[in-house]
């Protein structure tokens, strides 16, 4: 079948980027994972007998805690990046400004993810006592 897009539309490259399903699907997957993860984290933090360093480290250094925390940090930063990206795309309309903001947002999220995982691993391997 002949394409319904006009020749002008084709050369100017406007319209769907054909990448939306991937973004949409990952947003759903990460949100499903975050339901139990964030509830676990909130209840765990609130259940700690105190917030002093010894107590926090004893909790964080347990294998399952460290593992779930790492998953939480990775999934949460990814979900956040997907969400903030859409907000930027919706409200920042100048092309250069939009690209710059998206680059900063992506870098910031990558940094948060790596810093978070690094911190958890350091505690888990006994480097923070």
């Amino acid at each position: 079948m002949k394409s319904l897009r006009s020749p002008l539309g084709v050369v100017s490259g406007l319209g769907s980027a054909k990448g939306g399903v991937h973004h949409w699907w990952l947003q759903r997957l990460t949100s499903i994972a975050l339901v139990p993860l964030t509830i676990w984290f909130t209840v765990s933090i609130l259940s700690l007998p105190s917030m002093d360093h010894v107590t926090v480290i004893a909790w964080m250094a347990q294998s399952w805690t460290a593992l779930l925390l790492i998953v939480l940090v990775l999934v949460a930063t990814y979900h956040s990046q997907l969400g903030v990206r859409v907000v930027v795309e919706d409200y920042v309309h100048t092309t250069g400004m939009k690209t710059l903001t998206l680059v900063i947002v992506t870098f910031a999220h990558a940094l948060l993810a790596v810093a978070g995982v690094f911190a958890i691993l350091k505690v888990a391997f006994g480097g923070a006592a």
Binding site: S80, V84, A115, A119, A128
Partner: peptide
């Protein structure tokens, strides 16, 4: 609220780094 929680991630990671940074 989503954007707020993204900002909250900064607080979370700051806290994690502090825990890892020693007493």
């Amino acid at each position: 609220t989503g954007v707020l929680l993204s900002v909250g991630l900064i607080v979370l990671v700051y806290w994690l780094m502090a825990v890892a940074g020693g007493t």
